[in-house]
């Protein structure tokens, strides 16, 4: 290697430089020292606290007066450091994700990033809104960066699309927890998993049956026909939930005594831990359902 030259500054104000055409004019000005040119507060994840705040204001009456959400064990969600929140998933257009995100943000004052299927990004307007209000595509790299490097709270539904796609007669019966990817995410990031059992989402928008052929034509993961559609019509029924009473119970956080940042983790261990969490969540759901006197009043 040759002699080290002092690092050249990118501001040779007097040095003529190539312009668009190639002429020599001192187009290169001193670097802008003005304030940050950013005009919006959209972060690297696409989240905007302004939009999130607006969404919170719009959503708060629904949270308080429509779903009348009640939490049990909210103190088990860590106030500092990363944690992976997992929950059961239900309702044709899942009502549980906003409830959890809103609840945790209101009560703990911490942002929650909700992981969702990549498919969301392909939907115009909806994908952008989802991203601005804290949604992130469920990619292992995204989860690692959020959990490990930025120590954030991340919400994921291990059932994936199979949870909200199930029909009303299967309500509160947990689907398979994928391939245990969420456990691997938490292990690699070295953060605990905080399971939350949600009661109420199933009844807020129950699926009567699905129309797979229409789903295929429209390119959506599933095409539900819900009780809301029958009650309120096809348009209003897609966005209006039944006022089911929401109860959420936070289970004890699960920590893993494995080293973070490993390339791979024992598949059998991952599957076992995932199954363990699933069993606990299922038992808690049954317990809560046994205690529930009314779908609408809790």
């Amino acid at each position: 290697m040759g002699v080290e030259k002092p690092t050249p500054t990118p501001t040779p104000a007097t040095t003529p430089d190539a312009t668009r055409g190639g002429e020599l004019v001192p187009l290169r000005r001193p670097r802008a020292t003005a304030a940050d040119p950013r005009l919006s507060d959209v972060d690297e994840w696409g989240r905007s606290e302004h939009m999130r705040e607006l969404a919170r204001q719009l959503y708060d009456p629904i949270y308080r007066h429509w779903f009348r959400v009640e939490w049990d064990g909210l103190e088990k969600i860590p106030r500092h450091g990363g944690a992976l929140i997992v929950a059961n998933h239900a309702g044709a257009i899942p009502s549980d994700a906003p409830v959890i995100m809103h609840g945790v943000e209101q009560e703990l004052g911490r942002p929650v990033y909700g992981l969702a299927d990549h498919w969301f990004k392909t939907v115009p307007v909806v994908g952008t809104m989802w991203s601005r209000t804290g949604g992130v595509a469920a990619h292992p790299e995204n989860a690692y960066r959020l959990l490990r490097e930025q120590q954030q709270l991340v919400l994921v539904f291990p059932e994936g699309g199979k949870g909200p796609a199930k029909t009303y007669d299967e309500r509160y019966r947990l689907r398979r927890f994928g391939r245990g990817g969420f456990v691997e995410m938490a292990m690699r990031a070295g953060v605990p998993i905080v399971p939350i059992a949600v009661v109420g989402a199933e009844e807020s928008m129950p699926i009567l049956f699905r129309v797979p052929s229409l789903a295929k034509i429209l390119g959506v993961p599933y095409m539900p026909v819900t009780a809301n559609h029958l009650a309120f019509g096809p348009l209003l029924g897609t966005v209006l939930y039944f006022p089911a009473k929401f109860r959420l119970k936070v289970l004890d956080p699960v920590s893993f005594d494995v080293a973070p940042d490993q390339e791979r983790y024992s598949k059998s261990r991952v599957i076992d831990e995932a199954e363990d969490i699933r069993v606990k969540l299922q038992a808690t759901l049954y317990e809560m359902l046994a205690a529930r006197k009314s779908v609408w009043f809790g």
Binding site: T19, R20, G21, G22, E23, L24, V25, L27, R29, R31, A32, A34, P37
Partner: peptide, 21 residues
């Protein structure tokens, strides 16, 4: 982006320079 925007504003006033070399 700001660097580009500044150059763009300058070009709008003094015009695009054509090759001289």
């Amino acid at each position: 982006v700001e660097s580009f925007a500044r150059a763009q504003r300058l070009r709008r006033t003094v015009g695009d320079s054509r090759p001289a070399y």
